[in-house]
Design a protein around this nucleic acid. Sequence first.
RNA 1: GGCGGCAUAGCCAAGUGGUAAGGCAGAGGUCUGCAAAACCUUCACCCCCAGUUCAAAUCUGGGUGCCGCCUCCA
Length: 505
Amino acid sequence: MLGKKLHFYNTAHRSKERFEPLHDPVSLYCCGPTVYNYAHIGNLRTYVFEDVLKRTLNAFGYNVKHVINITDVGHLTSDEDTGEDKMEKGAKREGKSVWDIAEHFTRTFIQDIASLNILPPDRWPKATDHIPQMIELVKKLEERGFTYTTSDGIYFDTEKFPSYTAFAGLDAENLRAGERVDMGEKRSVTDFALWKFSPGEGKRQMEWESPWGRGFPGWHIECSAMSLAYLPQPIDIHCGGADHIRVHHTNEIAQSEAATGKPFVRYWLHGEFLVFEKGKMAKSGDHFITMATLRQKGVAPLAYRMFCYTAHYRTPLSFSWEALASSAQSLANLRRLIGSLPSQSKASPPTTLQVAGALDPFYTALADDLNMPRAMAALWDIVRDDTLDAHLRRVCAEQADNVLGLELGRPPTETVQTVVGAEGEAMRLECATYVPIDLCNRLTALLSERRRARREKDYATADRIRQKLGAAGITVKDQPDGSTTVSIPAGVCTDSDRETLIFME
RNA sequence: GGCGGCAUAGCCAAGUGGUAAGGCAGAGGUCUGCAAAACCUUCACCCCCAGUUCAAAUCUGGGUGCCGCCUCCA
């Protein structure tokens, strides 16, 4: 793949472009979460896309310096002083301080990311640790004449930045015509706050001193300050959700370029939404699906990652439990298939050239703006291509997994426990969760009985036992080699009522 | 109101001018005591209408439906 060139769709130019970074390592900035609530799986889709991007860059020989910010500063929900911001609101809801809220949701976010095999960034800068940098940036903008002051804050004057509308293809006139935003004292609808003055004593838990008095930063400024603090400008790649194009990224560009006089970012990549029948999943809505929801339903995190690969990142992906289940099945099938290929070579191990050759369609799909549906199709083709050496196919799958992050070398289910049957015959227990030892023993006893029944050709008894287990979600499969595999889905073993049900003989 | 996107088999979807990838589910078969797995085979003319073209899911125009952004939401 080293000879191949990457192409990405650049939102800035609305076209696919050949990727030629300016820096080594490639600078990659991804807009992170505002930590006032759990991330839902729609949010997480974007981080999966960004992880694939980073892994692809690595696979194509690039070093990457990756930054994801944590926005732990609240911003007003409205431009009026009456509005509560999301952080403060979350704090009130949980009966904790805003700092506790930020801490808690930052930690769970990082755990969620890790469960999806998303590689951690090189830096996780927090907005609250960079207030001085933000103040510096605002000061610079003030010196250069891009700001004005109102009774509630310092604003960026978009009239002074002529190319403001270029990025999102805005029509300033019509924006004005469709006015819905409360202008307050803003001179133009597109103007935005850089620094907000404190609404008054005791109103907010997060406030800082500044040259303009006590207050807190505007929303967009933290991304500019932190990206400029850790990455050389112009930044090679800046990512985020599609919803950020219009306001957040447009404003980031304006304030960053106005302050430095240099281009801010070269390639802008945006991930589309995960959608539901009723539209997108919103954090502010009262029902949303999180990684915890998935775990409760017995869906492995990587099954969700697999599901993300069914659609291109720039296409909205329709969520349904049925579709997610099909991806979980697909992942198990793929792992089983790969597991059946020899991990050792009979003759000489495949050369890197052979592997690269076989994986060519896979990398071609990646190079074409991260076309994961096509990349997955290519992988299935490779793994099932019996004109290729079996071991080579396995090596290809393992190498592809460096980008996919699906742990394709693992057994189809989560963990494997081996128990020894009553007559000393080995039985494999494939479990999605930990199985208590007494349950193990009872299962073993039951399975041994079934073995005996089968041996004595008492199939009625054997089938009855299997049906009984099957009714509780436990599947019993006789393998060609004579062993028996038992699959226990997550949740089953922890449900004591079910246990009774299963083992009531 | 402005801007943008989408509509492909039961489900998730790729494909943007040459006659429809892949996955899941389904059907038939081989195998199996049965079941599972595995393997083989099979399963769409692409929302509607009108155009352009030798040729369109793919381009143009119109229609219908759905969605997103413009509201600190990835």
